[in-house]
Nucleic acid binder design. Structure first.
Length: 234
DNA sequence: TCATTAAATTGTT
DNA sequence: AACAATTTAATGA
């Protein structure tokens, strides 16, 4: 089968390949299948704005987004990055609250949207969906706990390793490859350090052979060693 | 296809 | 933080 002309990669991932969708029984999947829609965003575009009603649960089919908040002085703090295969925004959808943070595309990205009503239907009716949700929330909670623990004591290289490892988390970002397309500056924001400090940590990790640096790309060569460098269990 | 230009990213002070 | 150097992407002959 020839690939679609606008899509250079033959394996354009659909939301149907998402972990939660594959876990659903056929009838439950059919109940919401027609409700999902997709939209593409160029790098830098805002996917969801802080303060908006949270009417959708969002999935990253291609590309990467960050969840952050802009302060009055114009600077921003990044909380998490979500890459291919990851889903986000369930917190506000569940609680029926407004979006607490901005969601911004870091690369050209294709995002899937599941309407809140469909999300809540799955929440009420699907055991498999609830298992997925618990697993996802548990993984994210673990990430934040380790993040708080590590942010004080550890070296910058370890902080960077942690930030990188979180982008590759197999539960939260299942389809992320080993080539991470992110600038030193954005990775620094994700880790709460300056661009210079992020670059220094990256070079340390590169010297240790855990990663290889290219222009705009960080290639992870040994993800197991990277995770242990970040203080995460195997 | 190749040269030019702009934009993004990285390096240096 | 500001500036310089480098790489990539886009444009047009």
């Amino acid at each position: 089968m020839p690939a679609h002309p606008t899509d250079p990669h033959s394996g354009a991932s659909s939301w149907l390949q998402s972990r939660w969708a594959r876990a659903l029984p056929r009838d439950e999947l059919q109940a919401v299948a027609g409700d999902v829609w997709e939209r593409s965003f160029p790098a830098g575009a805002t996917v969801a704005t802080k303060g908006q009603a949270a009417d959708h649960w969002m999935g990253v089919l291609e590309g990467m987004v960050k969840v952050d908040t802009n302060r009055a002085d114009g600077r921003s703090t990044t909380f998490i990055g979500v890459s291919s295969g990851g889903w986000l925004g369930e917190g506000a959808v569940l609680k029926g609250e407004r979006r607490p943070y901005d969601v911004v595309a870091l690369q050209d990205s294709r995002i899937a949207f599941l309407p809140r009503a469909s999300f809540l239907w799955l929440y009420e009716h699907s055991l498999a969906f609830n298992h997925f949700l618990i697993t996802q929330l548990n993984a994210r909670l673990a990430q934040f706990i380790v993040s708080v623990e590590r942010s004080r004591i550890h070296t910058t290289a370890e902080q960077i390793a942690f930030g990188l490892a979180s982008l590759l988390d197999p539960v939260l970002n299942p389809e992320a490859g080993c080539r991470v397309r992110i600038s030193h500056e954005e990775l620094g924001k994700l880790c709460g350090v300056s661009r210079q400090v992020a670059a220094k940590g990256l070079h340390t990790l590169a010297q240790q052979g855990l990663i290889r640096l290219e222009y705009g790309v960080i290639e992870v060569r040994d993800s197991t060693a990277l995770r242990s460098a970040a203080g995460l269990a195997g």
